[in-house]
Amino acid sequence: MSGKTNLSELLKGMTPKLNKGEYVFCTIKDSSLLDRKKVICEFTEAEGITIITTKGYADEQGFTYSFIASWITLTIHSSLEAVGLTAAFSSELTKHNISCNVIAAYYHDHIFVDKKDAAKAIMVLEELSKKQE
């Protein structure tokens, strides 16, 4: 199952879902001791390893972070080959001064926004979706 590629269908059916909790981005040097069940995402860059995890786990481990985020999942199954979805929703969030950090996974797109902007971001995304009807 490869997911949808039609931009209009993707926007119309994206159905944003706010996941419970507070999430943080941390950078670490060694990931061998991580509890993988508590890590949402891990990405290795030349400068270090970035993880996304709950604020609670980061605090337990003494990881530093500077951004507390809310996690929004677009529940439509988007194809990794879809063109324009990220540009469309990020442009709309930009119009409302909402920063977003995006992770495209196999089934869904995941958006991390500042915790204080979560409700507003959901509203903006829902309005964008309704414009497609």
Score class of each variant (00 low, 15 high):
Met123Asp: 14
Ala121Phe: 08
Glu92Tyr: 05
Asn97Tyr: 12
Asn101Gly: 10
Ile122Leu: 10
Trp71Arg: 07
Ala87Phe: 03
Ile98Tyr: 07
Ala119Trp: 02
Thr94His: 06
Glu92Thr: 15
Glu81Ile: 08
Ala121Val: 05
Thr75Tyr: 01
Lys95Ser: 14
Ala118Pro: 11
Asn97Val: 12
Ser79Lys: 07
Ala69Cys: 14
Ala87Met: 10
Ile103Pro: 02
Asp109His: 11
Ser70Asp: 09
Met123His: 13
Asp109Asn: 12
Phe112Pro: 09
Lys120Leu: 14
Ser99Met: 09
Ala105Leu: 11
Asp114Gly: 04
Lys120Asn: 08
Val113His: 07
Leu85Ala: 05
His77Lys: 14
His110Gly: 07
Ile111Gly: 08
Leu85Thr: 12
Cys100Lys: 01
Ile122Trp: 02
Ile103Leu: 11
Ala119Ile: 15
Glu92Ser: 12
His96Met: 00
Ile111Glu: 00
Thr75Asn: 11
Asn101Leu: 05
Val83Asp: 09
Ala119Tyr: 08
Asp114Trp: 08
Thr73Asn: 08
Tyr65Phe: 13
Thr64Cys: 05
Tyr107Asp: 11
Asp109Arg: 09
Ile68Met: 07
Phe63Met: 01
Ile98Pro: 06
Leu80Cys: 07
Asn101Val: 11
Ala82Lys: 05
Phe63Lys: 09
Thr73Cys: 04
Phe89Gly: 06
Leu85Arg: 06
His110Phe: 03
Tyr106Gln: 00
Lys95Ala: 07
Val113Asn: 01
Val83Phe: 00
Tyr65Glu: 03
Ala87Glu: 10
Lys115Ala: 08
Ser79Tyr: 00
Ser66Val: 10
Ala118Ile: 10
Phe89Thr: 11
Asn101His: 15
Phe112Gln: 01
Leu80Lys: 08
Ile72His: 04
Ile111Trp: 00
Val83Leu: 05
Ser91Gly: 15
Phe89Cys: 11
Thr86Ile: 15
Ile103Gly: 01
Lys116Trp: 01
Ala118Phe: 05
Asn101Tyr: 12
Ala104Arg: 13
Phe112Tyr: 15
Val124Lys: 09
Ile122Val: 04
Lys120Arg: 15
Phe89Tyr: 14
Ser78Ala: 15
Ala104Val: 04
Met123Phe: 12
Phe67Gly: 03
Ala121Met: 10
Lys120Met: 04
Ala87Cys: 09
Ala88Gln: 04
His108Lys: 02
Ile98Glu: 01
Ile98Arg: 08
Ile68Gln: 00
Ile103His: 04
His96Gln: 15
Ala69Gly: 03
His96Cys: 03
Met123Asn: 14
Ala118Lys: 06
His77Gly: 04
Lys95Gly: 11
Ala119His: 11
His96Thr: 14
Gly84Arg: 00
Thr73Glu: 09
Val124Asn: 06
Ser70His: 05
Ser90Ala: 14
Ala118Asn: 05
Ala121His: 10
His77Glu: 10
Tyr107Asn: 12
Phe63Ala: 06
Ala119Phe: 04
